[in-house]
Design a protein around this nucleic acid. Structure first.
Length: 687
RNA sequence: GGUGAUGUAGCUCAGCUGGUUAGAGCGGCGGAUUCAUAACCCGCAGGUCGGUGGUUCAAGUCCACCCAUCACCA
């Protein structure tokens, strides 16, 4: 193992106006696995985080709740911290950016930037809400896109034609806050002269940022680095800018300084040396884990600000992708806005940690969460393979040898094979390729199960003179299990904790991959992890749907975008609209019938369709239904459904569809076929 | 619209600097087994590697264009 490293790690700061959801956890799990791995290897690795408190969204949310912003952020940050604990995210300190340490450091940084000549002033024109007496951030103005005429677009870009513009260019602009038409006002703002750092950044980026991201940054370098507006006018929830009257720091200016502030706060309670970590000549490694949406802030503004203020720059910025659920963006409407707290109320956090880890690579690719996939993966890998090893060996040790392990391993070479693989797995973890690490570990678990299978201790156990051999084989099995548990310790700390208890050898450390456990007593085996039950998953999903039914104000919607939240997992929120009213005659034109599904097959070449053969009593017909994402053919056989029987047949590439079956839901996994209650017969009209 | 990333078996993903019949896990099918939380073990089936064109003795792997998805545009 290499010399002891000194590392400081941060995750992006969750915004303090809303709860954490499963999207946030991708990052915290990724960070925590890496941090726990470094600690397991014996390195000093400190992990800090905080809630991002400032900005217009928190101000407005507090107003809506009828409380002071300080109360709101204390409440939400407390919730965040609680979620961190429940997901076993091992932060050493958690703060909010409204803390005094942050005000102190933000002022210090600002003063240094002023002294260095890195701050300028400029008059700008901005949308203003006369009703609320406030300037409006881009996301708080909506109107008609000047490029394509699409209505209800945000003030910064058009979701319909992707044009970008300023809110002042929108046609028929409306303030999201008051619903009135904004005016335009001028105001003097302070700007950080990013251009002063162009050469320094160009030199810094290639060695500290992923090559793909560096290519992306080229776009900004090519366009020329522009000044960055770091001030805001009141009313604004933030820190006042020293020496200015009625000016506040823009949330994005003080947010990353929150990393330092959280650390400073820790220094004061733990007696650490702040300058040793943040001073210009610090040799400590500093890494930021962030999402791909906030790359610019962390690879341009942030290192420039640090440098200008006389601090060290990050050693690396690690970028991950977003979470999709069943291939779709997280969406309140689809019921996939799943709070961290909802998940953990029904399922062990380790399930999600393992699932994410099994999919996380070092790059900025999005990862997909699919609950049936999660269930299959966790049940098969963790319960069926990993825990199974201990479960199938422990009984023999207790029955035949009073719970005491053999004095030596029957197969040292196999144990050494695992130890050798541990080096490669360590490299995977260190390179943030958790998916690769997990793959290797599961291959070892397969190997361990195969070993037991080959030795067949349950057959040997029938002969009295084979008892020692059985104990030896099971001792081997349990030692392989022990190595596996150790290798997974960064990922599933809850399970490994229970396993350590069971093995009775104290806390596992990395050195244990080379040292088998022999001649000691193990505890009685108890289930280390229960299987994921479909009921729990269903409970989570239905709670999320209930959440979605709660009213969402426009302000929250705006904040769900990336105005200020550091972790701005995009959330889709367009509601399902009611269609135009019709009279009874129109409805009566529809011939709805009960049908029995007589046959159901996949359609080759169609990823959405299932071919249904429907029995309508006196006749049969074929219907292609776009329900493949939610149903398997076998589950449909014999089911009664409702079909639109007089729909004009539609020729498709795969044949003609003679009708349509009725289903509810937004699509994807969430398609729910309508069925009549028991008793309805095929062919019955639905009226 | 510009820029970057991604698109490989039903599902989730590996495939490093181009090189024999494209891999794994899950799911499916068949078999074996009963120590184990219906777990484990053996075997089989499944892919024109998003599309089109090109470079090359040889391309999933390089180039061009196109399509789709995600992100960013201070």
């Amino acid at each position: 193992m290499s010399a002891k490293r000194k590392i400081l790690v941060t995750s992006a700061l969750p915004y303090a106006n809303n709860s954490l959801h499963l999207g946030h956890l991708v990052e915290y799990v990724q960070t925590d696995v890496w941090v726990r791995f470094q600690r397991l290897r014996g390195h000093e690795c400190i992990y800090v985080c905080a809630s991002d408190a400032h900005g217009t969204p928190t101000m407005l949310r507090a107003e809506r709740e009828g409380i002071e912003p300080e109360e709101l952020i204390a409440w939400i940050a407390g919730e965040h911290q609680h979620d961190f604990e429940r997901f076993r995210i091992s932060v050493d300190n958690y703060l909010t950016t409204h803390a005094s340490e942050n005000e102190e450091l933000t002022s210090r940084v600002f003063r240094k930037l002023v002294e260095g000549g890195h701050i300028g002033r400029k008059m700008i024109r901005q949308a203003y809400d006369e009703h609320r007496n406030m300037f409006l951030p881009d996301r708080y103005v909506r109107g008609t896109c000047p490029a394509c005429g699409a209505r209800h677009q945000y003030g910064d870009n058009c979701e319909s034609c992707a044009a970008t513009y300023s809110p002042l260019e929108l046609k028929d602009p409306v303030s999201v806050v008051s619903g009135t038409k904004p005016t335009v006002r001028e105001s003097e703002h302070l700007f950080f002269r990013l251009g002063n750092f162009e050469e320094e950044l160009k030199a810094w980026v290639p060695d500290h940022v992923d090559p793909a991201m560096a290519r992306k940054l080229k776009e900004w370098f090519d366009a020329g680095l522009r000044d960055w507006d770091i001030s805001r006018d009141p009313p604004y929830f933030g820190f006042s800018i020293p020496g200015e009257s009625g000016k506040f720091f823009y949330v994005w200016f003080d947010a990353p300084i929150g990393y330092m502030a959280s650390f400073l706060n820790l220094c004061r309670s733990a007696g650490l040396d702040f300058e040793a970590f943040w001073g210009a000549d610090s040799t400590v490694e500093l890494y930021h884990f962030i999402g791909k949406d906030i790359v610019y802030f962390h690879t341009l503004f942030w290192p420039a600000v640090l440098s200008g203020a006389g601090f060290r720059k990050p050693t690396g910025v690690f970028v991950h992708g977003f979470l999709t659920i069943s291939g779709e963006k997280i969406s309140k409407r689809r019921g996939t806005f799943i709070r961290a707290s909802t998940f953990v109320r029904h399922l062990d956090a380790d399930y999600l940690r393992y699932y994410y880890a099994s999919k996380l690579g070092p790059g900025p690719d999005d990862i997909d969460l699919n609950f049936s996939d999660l269930m299959a993966k966790v049940n098969s890998d963790l319960v069926g393979k990993l825990v199974n090893i201990a479960s199938r060996c422990a009984g023999f040790i207790h029955r035949l040898n009073d719970g005491v392990l053999a004095r030596e391993l029957p197969d040292d070479a196999l144990f050494a094979e695992f130890a050798a693989a541990a080096d490669e797995i360590a490299a995977d973890y260190n390179g943030r390729n958790c998916a690769a690490a997990v793959r290797r570990i599961m291959a070892l678990a397969d190997r361990a199960n195969r070993y037991i299978d080959e030795k067949k201790p349950w057959i040997m156990a029938r002969e009295d003179d084979q008892r020692d051999a059985v104990v030896a084989v099971c001792t081997q099995g349990l030692n392989l299990f022990r190595t596996l548990i150790l290798l997974l310790k960064p990922v599933i700390p809850g399970v490994t904790g229970r396993a350590e208890q069971f093995l009775g050898g104290g806390e596992l450390t990395w050195a244990d991959v080379k040292e088998p456990m022999l001649g000691t007593r193990i505890e009685e085996f108890k289930a280390l992890l229960k299987r994921v039950e479909a009921d729990s998953v269903e409970a989570i999903l239905s709670e999320a749907r209930e959440d979605a039914a709660l009213p969402t104000t426009q302000a929250t919607r705006a904040a769900a975008g990336s105005e200020a939240g550091q972790v701005a997992q995009p959330v889709e929120t367009a509601p399902a609209k009611l269609v135009e009213e019709i009279d009874i005659e129109h409805f009566a034109k529809m011939d709805l019938r009960v049908a029995r599904i007589a046959a159901a097959t996949y359609v080759k070449g169609a990823d959405k369709l299932i071919r249904l053969r429907l029995d309508l009593g006196d006749s049969q017909r074929t219907v292609f239904a776009g329900i493949r994402s939610a149903y398997v053919p076998a589950a449909l056989l014999g089911k009664h459904v409702v079909v639109v029987a007089n729909l004009t047949p539609r020729k498709m590439r795969f044949g003609t569809s003679e009708g349509m079956v009725l289903a509810a839901g937004p699509g994807g996994k969430d398609i729910f076929l309508l069925s009549p209650d028991a008793g309805a017969q095929p062919g019955m009209p639905v009226t």
